[in-house]
Amino acid sequence: MPENEEKAAEVFAHEHEEEEHKTPGTVVLTLALLISFAVYYFANWKALADVWHVR
């Protein structure tokens, strides 16, 4: 049993390696999205904090 599991893990690791993709451009693109998102989002909270109080 443990041997089988080991084999399976090996196969998986192998597939894993093969399937590894390098996508640095996409990473930069998505990080730019995340940063602009955060800036716009928190700027809006700041604007909200400046209006009348309401509940």
Binding site: E15, H16, E19, E20, H21, K22, T23, P24, T26, V27, T30, L34, F37, A38, Y41, W45
Partner: peptide, 25 residues
């Protein structure tokens, strides 16, 4: 079916963390 790996996995983690920030706000 295989779990995400590499940069994809990192991005999902990062996006999930951001979503949690959004929902806690």
């Amino acid at each position: 079916f295989k779990p995400p790996s590499g940069a994809e996995r990192t991005w999902i983690g990062l996006a999930l963390a951001w979503c949690l920030v959004l929902s806690i706000m």
